[in-house]
Design a protein around this nucleic acid. Structure first.
Length: 468
RNA sequence: CGGAGUGUAGCGCAGCCUGGUAGCGCACCUGCUUUGGGAGCAGGGGGUCGGAGGUUCGAAUCCUCUCACUCCGACCA
C-alpha cells in the first residue's frame, strides 16, 4: 500500500477543538454530570451537587469545586461582598495558615482542641490552618489603630477555613474545609458595638433574601466564642440538622429592596426589632413556656440549617490581646468587638436543600450559575442551529449569561441535564416551533411553558433578571 | 473518639462463602439507522480487584497488617 490521502471526515475534523474564552456552549464547557448517584451521598444537596458536576470529593470533608459549583460559589461571594460593603464594612484578605503564637496569646491554642489542624513548618515553627480569625484580625487592628478617632471600623474577609471535624458528612454542608465570610467590628463603646451587631443582622437578612432563601434570625448560644448577644440564621429545610420553633409571623417578613441608612441607629434597630420580635429559637435555646404564648395556629416546629451567626463579645479578645485605643479622656481602653460569619460554601448546599425536586436542582434567579439554558432539539439542523446562535448572542448582548446545550444529544437527554443542573429558565428551540416562528420559554420551578418569538423570549429573560 | 460497614473500569453493582487468573448495566470510542422527555443494532477500548505481607502449584476469593471512604452516636459554620 502506498500513501493514502484520507478524505476529511466531517465528524472527526481533527483532535484540536478551539475553546473560546467565556464561551458557554456545552460542548466547550466542563460539566461532568452523572446519571447515577454516587453511593456515598445521603442527602439531596450532596447527591445533586455530585450528579450535576458541581463538586468532587478530594478526601473526607474536602471538595474540589468544579466549574458549575465554582460559579455558584463565586456568585454567593459576590452577593455577600455587595451587602457588606453597602453597610460600610471593609473587605481584606487574611491567610489560611496562622502562627500558633497568636493563639497562645488569646488562650485558645489549648482550648480549641483537636478540631484545630496543627502544622509544623520546616523550621519547627508551630502553625495552624485557621478555623476562624479573631486572633489574626485583632493583631492587625492593634498594630494599626491607637485612637478612638479611628473607630468604628468593621473588617471582613471571605476565606477558606479548616475545622477537623470528627465526622464530616452531608457534602459541603458539614465539610472540614469550608468557605466562610467572617467579619469583625471594633468599636469604642458597647453601644457602638451593638449598632455594629444590628447592622450585621440587617445585612445578613438582606443577603439571604437576595439568594432566595428564607433565613430566620434565632436567639442562640454563644458557645466557645463567648459573649451575651448572639443570633444564628437558619434556613428552613426539612433536612435541616437543627430543630426549630418559630412563630409563623416571622416567615411573612420581607426586607425587600428598600434603601437603608446604615448610619441611622434607630432605623437599623427597628428592623432588628421587627425581625426578632416573633418567637424563633433552635432546640438549644427553646423555651416551651414562652412558645406556648404564641397563638397555636402560628406555632411552627420544623427543621433548619444554620448558615450564619453574629456575636457581640465585648472585650473578650481585646483585653487579653491588648487591643486598646486611647479615648477622648486620654485613657487606654480595650475596644468592644463582635464577629459575624456566613457559611458561604455551606450555603450552596442549603440552597439546594431548600430548592430541588426529584429531577434536580431549582436555582433561585439570584444565585443561578447561568441565567437561561438554551436547548437545541435538532443539533445540526441549519435553521435550529442558527436560531440558537441568535438567541445565545442576543441574550449575551442583554448582559445575560446563557448556557447553550449544543451537544449532539437527543431531546430527552438535554432536558434531563437542564432539569438536573437547575437553571431557572429554559428556551427550547426545535424545527416544529421554528416553522411558526416561535421558541418555548419554560420555568424550571413551575414547569409551565409559553411559546413566543425568539426576540420576545430574550426580552422576557432580560425582564426577569433586571435588578438581580 | 466509640459502634457498624464498604473498597472490583468514570458511575452503579455482581463475582468472594465453595481459590483456577474478572463480569454486567450506564458512560466512553467507531459505523449505520433514529431524533420534541435519558433510542436501536453491530463492533471496540478501558480494571496489576485500595496497599503490603503471608498460605498455596495457583489468590479478587483464605489469613495478617495497613490505608482510605461511608453510615449510626457524642461534637460542630
Amino acid at each position: 500500500m502506498g500513501l493514502q490521502v484520507l478524505p476529511p471526515s466531517p465528524k472527526s475534523a481533527g483532535p484540536i477543538r478551539h475553546r473560546r474564552y467565556r464561551d458557554m456552549r456545552l460542548t466547550n464547557y466542563f460539566l461532568p454530570v452523572l446519571r447515577e448517584t454516587p453511593a456515598e451521598a445521603q442527602i439531596a444537596s450532596h447527591r445533586l451537587m455530585l450528579r450535576a458536576g458541581m463538586i468532587r470529593q478530594a478526601s473526607a470533608g474536602i471538595y474540589s469545586w468544579l466549574p458549575l459549583g465554582f460559579k455558584v460559589l463565586r456568585r454567593l461571594e459576590q452577593i455577600v461582598h455587595e451587602e457588606q460593603q453597602r453597610a460600610g464594612h471593609i473587605p481584606l484578605l487574611m491567610p489560611t495558615l496562622q502562627s500558633a503564637d497568636l493563639w497562645r496569646e488569646s488562650g485558645r491554642y489549648d482550648d480549641y482542641g483537636e478540631e484545630m489542624l496543627r502544622i509544623t513548618d520546616r523550621q519547627g515553627r508551630e502553625m495552624l490552618y485557621g478555623p476562624t480569625n479573631e486572633e489574626l484580625i485583632t493583631d492587625i487592628f492593634r498594630s494599626a489603630v491607637g485612637s478612638y478617632r479611628d473607630l468604628p471600623v468593621t473588617l471582613y474577609h471571605i476565606q477558606w477555613k479548616f475545622r477537623d471535624e470528627m465526622r464530616p458528612r452531608f457534602g459541603v454542608m458539614r465539610g472540614r474545609e469550608f468557605l466562610m465570610k467572617d467579619g469583625y467590628n471594633f468599636d469604642l463603646t458597647k453601644e457602638d458595638a451593638l449598632h455594629a451587631y444590628n447592622r450585621h443582622m440587617v445585612t445578613y437578612i438582606r443577603t439571604y433574601e437576595r439568594m432566595g432563601l428564607k433565613a430566620i434570625p434565632m436567639r442562640a448560644d454563644s458557645g466557645p466564642i463567648g459573649g451575651d448577644y448572639t443570633h444564628e440564621f437558619l434556613v428552613l429545610a426539612p433536612t435541616g440538622e437543627s430543630e426549630v420553633f418559630y412563630d409563623r409571623a416571622v416567615t411573612d417578613l420581607t426586607l425587600g429592596n428598600r434603601e437603608i441608612d446604615f448610619a441611622d441607629r434607630e432605623a437599623v434597630r427597628e428592623i432588628c426589632d421587627t425581625w426578632t420580635a416573633p418567637y424563633a429559637r433552635t432546640d438549644e435555646t427553646h423555651d416551651a413556656a414562652v412558645f406556648e404564648v404564641v397563638p397555636e395556629e402560628r406555632r411552627v416546629v420544623g427543621r433548619g440549617i444554620e448558615v450564619g451567626q453574629i456575636f457581640y463579645f465585648g472585650t473578650e479578645y481585646s483585653e487579653p490581646m491588648k487591643a486598646v485605643v486611647v479615648n477622648e479622656a486620654g485613657e487606654r481602653v480595650p475596644v468592644h468587638m463582635g464577629s459575624h460569619g456566613i457559611g458561604v460554601s455551606r450555603l450552596v448546599g442549603a440552597l439546594i436543600e431548600a430548592n430541588h425536586d426529584d429531577r434536580g436542582i431549582i436555582w433561585p434567579e439570584g444565585v443561578t450559575p447561568f441565567h437561561v439554558g438554551i436547548v437545541n432539539l435538532k443539533q445540526g439542523d441549519g435553521e435550529a442551529d442558527a436560531a440558537c446562535e441568535a438567541l445565545y448572542s442576543g441574550l449575551k448582548a442583554r448582559g445575560l449569561d446563557p448556557l447553550y446545550d449544543d451537544r449532539d444529544e437527543r431531546a430527552g437527554g438535554k432536558f434531563a441535564t437542564m432539569d438536573l443542573i437547575g437553571l431557572p429558565w429554559r428556551i427550547t428551540v426545535g424545527p416544529r416551533g421554528l416553522k411558526n416562528g416561535v421558541v418555548e420559554l419554560t420555568s424550571r420551578r413551575t414547569g409551565e411553558s409559553e411559546e413566543m418569538s425568539p426576540e420576545a423570549a430574550i426580552d422576557r429573560c432580560a425582564q426577569i433578571y433586571a435588578g438581580l
